[in-house]
Design a protein around this nucleic acid. Structure first.
Lengths: 351, 351
DNA sequence: TGTTAGCACTCACTTTAATAGAGTGCTAAT
DNA sequence: ATTAGCACTCTATTAAAGTGAGTGCTAACA
C-alpha cells in the first residue's frame, strides 16, 4: 500500500491516465510501449502494469481488456500534476483577456456576473460548472426600511459587493413614516460596515436601547437583517453546461444522466458540495474530488474540481467544474485559475 | 382531409390513443378488437385503421407493426377530451386541499410560491413543469431611492403582489440626501398605482417638470424603473422535474435528452414557449402544443400543455407541463386547473 | 537479474443466420 | 358490411461463429 512507486512505474501510470483521458477506452500494454519514450517492450509494460494493478492504481474492466485508472490512480496523477503546475501560473494571455472582456462587459449586478462566469467556463471546458455567490463574511453597506402601506414594511439590505437582499415584513402594529425614518438612521449609523458576525449582543442591546418605545420592532428587524443578509443559508448557485455531461458515454446512460441532471436541478445538493469543498481546500484553494471522494453521492462517477475565489479578507465563493472522471484536469485547473483571477479583480474594483 | 370521422372511427381512434398512452407501444388491430365494446373482429378494425391511416390520424412505424397516433390524431383526441371535461370542473377535493396547504405554507415571496408550484406539479404528474412569474401589467406599489455612497444610488421598486425589483445606479454627478428624499416623494406621489403602460409622455414631462434642476437624473431613474419593473423582459421562469423526461424511453436517448434538458437549462427558450402560449390561449386559457406544433424546436417530440393564471385584471403568468406526446392529457389538464385555482387564490389574498 | 519474444488463452464485440411473433393486407366466404 | 383465413413483412431474439485486442506465462537472451 504505502509502497512508493519507482520512476518508471510512475511514468507508465501517467501514460495510462493520459491516454485514457483522451480516448476514454481502456489502454493496453502495446499502446503504452509506443506512447512513452521508455523504449520498453509491451511485455515489460505488461509486467509493470500488473504490478500497478496489484497496488491499486489501475483496474481491468474485464480480463483481456486494457487498464483504466482507479480513483487512486487519478488521485496520484492529479496530485502530481498540481505539484508541477504550481508555479507556472500559466500565461495564456490571449485567452485571459478574452475572458476579461467577456466578464466585465455590461455586468452590473453580481448575479449576472456569476451566471456569465458559469456559462463561459462551461463553454470553454465542455464540462458542467457551478458558481456560488460569495458567502457574506461581507459587510453591510446600507440598510433601507420603507413603509409600503399601513401594515407592510420593506426591508432592503445592500451588502458590500452590491448584493442586494430584500424582504417584506408584516407589521403587528402600525407605525408612522417619521418612526421609520428614525429607524433608518439608527440602523445605518449603527450597523453599516459591520459583518453579520460582528453584530453581537452588545450591539443589539445598544440599538434596542436607543430605539426606546420601538424596541420590539427593532428586534424583529434585526432578526430579519440577520436572516436576509446572514450566513450561507440562501447562498445562490449558478450552473451551466449540465448537458455537457451527456456527451460522455460513460455518463450518458439513463441512470447516470438522471442522477447527474438531477443534481443540477435541485441545486441544494450542489450546496453541500460547495460547502464541504470550501472546508476542504486549505492551501491553494483548489480541491479535487475524484469519484467516490465526492460528498454528493449522485456524482460518484464524476470528478469535481473546485476553487474558492477571494474578495479581500476571508474565503468567499466557490467555482466548480464537474466532469467525467477522465476529465482534462490540467485544462480545468488552468481555466479555474484564470477565472478566479478575473473574479477577484471584478470584486476588487467593484467593491 | 376535411372529411368527418364517423362514430365508429372516432371510437377506434380514441381506443388507439388511449392504449398507446398507457403502453407506449404501437397498438394492433386485435388489441382494439378486444379493448373496445364495439364487438368487431380484428379484420374489421384493420380496415378502419387503414382508413384512419389514410386520413392521417395514425401512423405505422413500419409495416407489420401496430399503429401510433400522429400529431393530428393526438390533436383530435385532445380537442375531444377538452370538450367533454369542459364543465366537469373536477372536484378532487382531497387533492385540492392538500395542494392548498402546501402552497400557502410559509410562502412569503412570490418566487418561492412559484418554485413550489412547479415542484408540486412535477411530482404529481411525473412530467416536467414550467411556471412563469406574472407579467407586470401590475401596478407600481412603491418606489424607494436610496443613496448608498457618493456615486451610487439604489433603486427599489415594489410591484403589486409584492414582487420586488432592484438595481444600483451609478450617478454621474453627486447629489445629496435631501434631493433623494424629494425625488422619493415625487416619484411615489406620481407613479404609485400606475402600470408601466400608463406611464406615458405626459406623466414623464410632468415629473421632469417638477424635478427642476434634477430633470436629467429623473429621466434616468424613470428609464431604470421601466427597465426594472417593465415588460416581460426579465420574466422569471421556474422549472422542476426536468429529469422526469428521461423516464420515457422515446425521449431518453442521447439526442433527445440533450435537446430537452438544454431547454430547461437555458430558460430563455422557455420564455418563447410561454410568450407564444399566452398569445395562443384565447378561450379557456388552456393551450396544448402537440409535437411539431410547439414553438420550441427542441421539443418537437414532446407535448406541452399550458394554462395562464389570472390576477384580477389582465392575463398574467403561465403554468406549463411538458411531457412526451403520449402524456396523460386528462390528468395534466386536471392538475393544471386545480393549481391555477390555487394560484389565483394566493394572489387574490396576497395583493 | 531485468528484459524480451512468442504463444496460448480469454473475453467483449461483431457478424451472420435462423427463428419466433406480432401485425398487416388481401381474398373469398358469410 | 363483416369476418375468417392465409400469405407476407418486418422486428426482435437467440445462437453460433469469427475477430481482435489484450493478457499472463514461459523460455530465451543480454
Amino acid at each position: 500500500m504505502g509502497q512508493e512507486l519507482d520512476e518508471r512505474k510512475l511514468k507508465i501510470l501517467k501514460a495510462i491516465v493520459h491516454n485514457y483521458l483522451e480516448t476514454g477506452e481502456p489502454v493496453g500494454s502495446r499502446t503504452i510501449s509506443k506512447y512513452t519514450d521508455l523504449n520498453l517492450s509491451s511485455a515489460t509494460i505488461r509486467n509493470e502494469m500488473s504490478d500497478l494493478e496489484d497496488m491499486g492504481y489501475i483496474v481491468q474492466p474485464h480480463t483481456s481488456a486494457g487498464r483504466i485508472p482507479s480513483d487512486k490512480g487519478y488521485r496520484l496523477y492529479v496530485d502530481n500534476m498540481m505539484k508541477e503546475k504550481e508555479e507556472e501560473l500559466s500565461e495564456k494571455q490571449q485567452e485571459i483577456t478574452e475572458m476579461k472582456e467577456f466578464l466585465t462587459e455590461k455586468v452590473e449586478q453580481v448575479e449576472e456576473l456569476l451566471q456569465n462566469t458559469a456559462k463561459l467556463l462551461a463553454n470553454n471546458t465542455n464540462y458542467a460548472t457551478v458558481v456560488s455567490s460569495p458567502r457574506f463574511t461581507k459587510r453591510i453597506k446600507f440598510i433601507q426600511l420603507s413603509l409600503i402601506n399601513e401594515d407592510k414594511m420593506l426591508c432592503v439590505v445592500v451588502m458590500e459587493g452590491n448584493v442586494i437582499k430584500n424582504k417584506i415584513v408584516n407589521l403587528s402594529k402600525n407605525i408612522d413614516g417619521e418612526t421609520v425614518l428614525k429607524l433608518n438612521i439608527l440602523f445605518n449609523s449603527t450597523l453599516n460596515g459591520m459583518t453579520i458576525e460582528e453584530i453581537n449582543l452588545g450591539t443589539i442591546s445598544q440599538i434596542t436601547g436607543q430605539a426606546g418605545e420601538q424596541g420590539e420592532l427593532v428586534r424583529r428587524v434585526l432578526e430579519i437583517i440577520a436572516e436576509v443578509a446572514g450566513s450561507g443559508e440562501d447562498m445562490k448557485i449558478f450552473t451551466s453546461g449540465a448537458t455537457n455531461m451527456l456527451k460522455y458515454p460513460e455518463l450518458s446512460d439513463n441512470v447516470h444522466a438522471s442522477e447527474i441532471i438531477n443534481v443540477f436541478e435541485e441545486k441544494q445538493q450542489l450546496e453541500t458540495l460547495i460547502t464541504s469543498s470550501e472546508e476542504g481546500s486549505a492551501g491553494t484553494g483548489i480541491q479535487v474530488y475524484i469519484g467516490n471522494e465526492t460528498p454528493v453521492q449522485n456524482m460518484k462517477d464524476c470528478s469535481v474540481v473546485t476553487m474558492t475565489y477571494d474578495i479581500g479578507d476571508g474565503v468567499q465563493g466557490t467555482i466548480g467544474i464537474i466532469g467525467p472522471k477522465r476529465m482534462d484536469y490540467e485544462k480545468v485547473v488552468e481555466n479555474l485559475k484564470t477565472v478566479k483571477k478575473q473574479l477577484d479583480d471584478a470584486f476588487q474594483n467593484n467593491t
